[in-house]
């Protein structure tokens, strides 16, 4: 539990005049569930997008699993082992659930144009493996029975699950989840929590942004708090909860 998996330091990101992230640094260790919280507009999603390659930071360092990922494209980041979901679900709406997960395996498969056209034994074997793994992943997140349904027709909760399955299909070392519980009822949230614990137990490290503070405190091993683009605290939930700067910035001046 002590190996550092991901390390960033001195990350700065500006949008025009807005300094969205200033000098942010953090480390995520192998096998933990790492939470990222902060008030609205604190820069959580910006940081999340930096960590998944969608935004190119202006300055800083970013290493993951021994690889330098500073200012690398999302597909390179995925290849290195970081997979993500989106806050406002971005599935391939007119593809089936199964196809969505199959797309997720793109980066871990190799069949090219000629393999596909000639349908070589190798290509066929790979295609079969992709299908099998996709089915297994749908079962893993609990929506095996919806495999042939178009992603757009799935219920909201199932869409969230499908996004997680699709991300897992890239064989990530780190799974980054952007508000996976948003819009969920308590029952769904509870199921999601179990799913995340299962994923972690299977050896995948998790980075999590969430608004549901109770959920975060109960689930995360360590938490970082962002406010106005700066990291104001980092530590185990208990520490963070009692940190006065956090209470002031995030939980409001008067703690319960």
């Amino acid at each position: 539990m002590t190996d550092v998996l991901l390390k960033i330091s001195g990350i700065n990101k500006r949008f025009g005049g807005l300094h969205a992230l200033s000098d942010v640094g953090l480390t995520i260790k192998q096998g933990e569930i790492y939470g990222l919280i902060g008030p609205n507009g604190a820069g959580k999603t910006t940081l999340f997008n930096v960590l998944t390659g969608l935004y190119q930071p202006d300055e800083g360092e970013f290493t993951f699993n021994g690889k330098d990922l500073f200012r690398k494209k999302p597909n390179v980041v995925v290849e290195a082992g970081i997979a993500r979901t989106f806050q406002n679900i971005r599935l391939f709406a007119n593809m089936s659930a199964l196809e969505n997960v199959m797309v997720g395996q793109h980066v871990r498969s190799v069949t090219g144009v000629f393999g596909a056209i000639l349908r070589t034994p190798k290509a066929r074997a790979e295609e079969a493996a992709i299908t099998a793994k996709a089915e297994a992943l749908l079962a893993y997140v609990g929506i095996a029975d919806r495999a042939q349904e178009l992603a757009r027709n799935l219920s909201y909760g199932d869409q969230r699950r499908l996004e997680i399955a699709r991300a897992l299909a890239t064989n990530p070392t780190l799974l980054a989840l952007d508000e996976p519980a948003a819009g969920m009822n308590p029952k769904e949230t509870d199921d999601l929590k179990k799913l995340m614990e299962k994923i972690r137990a299977d050896g995948v490290t998790i980075l999590l942004i969430e608004h549901d503070v109770k959920l975060m405190m109960g689930l995360c091993d360590r938490i970082a708090v962002l406010d106005y683009g700066k990291k104001i605290a980092e530590g185990v939930p208990e520490e963070v909860k009692s940190n006065p700067r956090v209470i002031e910035a995030y939980l409001g001046v008067a703690p319960e």
């Binding site: 998944t52 390659g53 969608l54 494209k73 999302p74 597909n75 995925v78 290849e79 997979a83 993500r84 989106f86 971005r90 599935l91 391939f92 709406a93 007119n94 593809m95 196809e99 199959m102 797309v103 997720g104 793109h106 980066v107 871990r108 498969s109 069949t111 090219g112 144009v113 393999g115 596909a116 056209i117 000639l118 349908r119 290509a123 790979e126 295609e127 992709i130 699709r166 991300a167 299909a169 890239t170």
Partner: peptide, 26 residues
């Protein structure tokens, strides 16, 4: 043949949502 292949799926994925496709490693 292409339509039902890894490449064909990647094309459809890009058409559906390019950013998501990129974020899935394509």
């Amino acid at each position: 043949r292409l339509q039902n292949s890894r490449i064909g799926r990647a094309w459809v994925a890009i058409r559906e949502d390019e950013i998501a496709a990129n974020a899935m490693g394509i």
